[in-house]
Structures are given as C-alpha cells and as structure tokens.
Amino acid sequence: MTPAEIRNEILDILEDIAPDEDLSGLKDEVAFRDQLELDSMDFLDIVMELRKRHRVQIPEESYGELASMQSTVTYLEPLMKDLQKA
C-alpha cells in the first residue's frame, strides 16, 4: 500500500470509530486528540481494526506512534508497504 492508501484506510477506520466526527478538515500534522474526541479505547480500536483487516501487529510500546495522521502513516508505511490494497 502507498502512503496515500494507508491514509485512506486510517480515515475509513476513524469513520467507524467516531461516526459523529467530521473528518473532512482533519490536519495530518496535528494530534488526533487535539481535533477529535478520541480516548485511549479509540486508539485501541484502531490497533484492533488494523490487525483484523491487515494482520498488522502494533505492540503496546508503539501506540504513541498513532498520535497524528502523519506519525501514523510514517509508522505504518514499512509495515504495510508490501500489502495489497483490498
């Protein structure tokens, strides 16, 4: 998957997790928590969804990498670059 495809995938997951949020104006470099009402259970849901959809394993020490869209895509790129877009 390309970085753009990974970004779309994260957006898709966020739409499920936070159905009431407007994601159209999301700023990639700003922390999710400063723009959306996300708590630690929401981040856990992102981790679980990525494992379910793509078998990507994110160890707990690395949950901090999911702080913003930019850091998430940077972190996931090496883990997901060999995956085919579904």
């Binding site: 259970m41 856990l44 981790v47 679980m48 494992r51 078998r55 394993q57």
Partner: peptide, 17 residues
C-alpha cells in the same frame, strides 16, 4: 468492560502471532 477489551486485544495478538 474496557479492561476486558484491552485483554482480548492482547490475546488476539498472541494467538495470531
């Protein structure tokens, strides 16, 4: 309930690995 989810996540990760 939330701790149940946190642990289920850990178990799922372990079983998949």
């Amino acid at each position: 309930i939330n701790y149940g989810v946190i642990v289920a996540n850990a178990v799922d990760g372990m079983l998949m690995k």
